[in-house]
């Protein structure tokens, strides 16, 4: 059966990722041949899968902004607002139902590492709000960047009044450097001051980090910075 189709030899000179350095050994080191080829092959498969997904996503996002689209968007917005009103009404009914039956909206479990129940979470509407809910945190952001940058800060209600620290902001692509110059400070009147400096050579992309309580290390939110191209 000499006419059988056989797998073409793998190209070993141009690996997609420098995986070999990850395991403390350079190319040609003691790593088993099957192990190394499997890792390389695995990255090829998953990277190609991700690229295919991105191409599909780009196709769906390729929208024009002519008059028809704007009209469609306004209609969609109206429908969405009606839907949100309906969602809120549903939640309100749930709330009334629970209150009438004498239950609580959220059971606090002692087993949850002693964590106290969150009185409300972003996007959950008024149904989760209780009289003990902390006041919203006022945030001021100072960003130094030579390029367009967009900051997104998502804080839990428990973050109010707590000493916060942000980890270095990492890009999805591990080859990109972290954004380390990030500081969270308490300002006057309980205000939270976020200072970010984006180095001039930081590659465009989205950088994410977790905001944690400086005393307990409990995660209390996320901070993201999207750096655009010049």
């Amino acid at each position: 059966m000499s006419d059988r189709i056989r797998r073409p030899p793998l190209d070993r000179t141009e690996p997609i990722r420098a995986w070999s350095a990850l395991f403390g050994s350079g190319p040609g080191g003691s790593l088993n041949d099957v192990v190394s080829r499997s890792v390389e092959l695995g990255y090829r498969v998953i990277d190609e899968y991700i690229r295919q997904g991105q191409r599909v996503a780009e196709r769906f996002n390729d929208r024009s902004y002519g008059p028809e689209t704007v009209t469609g968007d306004i209609q969609e917005l109206g429908a969405r607002m009606a839907q949100y009103a309906s969602d809120f009404f549903g939640l309100w009914l749930d709330f009334v139902q629970v209150v009438m039956s004498g239950g609580t909206l959220r059971e606090t479990s002692a087993a949850e590492d002693g964590a106290r129940a969150r009185p409300a979470a972003p996007g959950n509407g008024a149904a989760r709000r209780t009289p003990e809910a902390p006041a919203p945190t006022r945030v001021r952001i100072e960003i130094v960047s030579h390029r367009p940058a967009e900051v997104s800060l998502d804080l839990r209600p428990e973050a109010a009044g707590r000493p916060l620290v942000a980890q270095g902001l990492r890009a999805v692509d591990p080859a990109k450097p972290k954004l380390d110059d990030v500081a969270l400070e308490a300002g006057p009147g309980g205000e939270l001051l976020v200072r970010i400096r984006v180095p001039g050579d930081a590659p465009p992309g989205t950088y994410n980090g977790v905001v944690v309580d400086a005393e307990t290390s409990r995660p209390l939110g996320t901070l993201s910075v999207r750096v655009g191209a010049v």
Binding site: W19, L22, F23, N32, V34, V35, S36, R37, S38, V39, G42, Y43, Q167, G168, R170, P174, N208, G209, V210, V212, S217, R218, P219
Partner: peptide, 22 residues
């Protein structure tokens, strides 16, 4: 050996994903 190689890559990806968490 293939399973070991893939698990090694999973450990590396774990490090990238979870390094910033407490």
């Amino acid at each position: 050996q293939m399973a070991h190689g893939l698990a090694g890559a999973a450990l590396h990806e774990y490090g990238l994903l979870y390094a910033g968490l407490p």
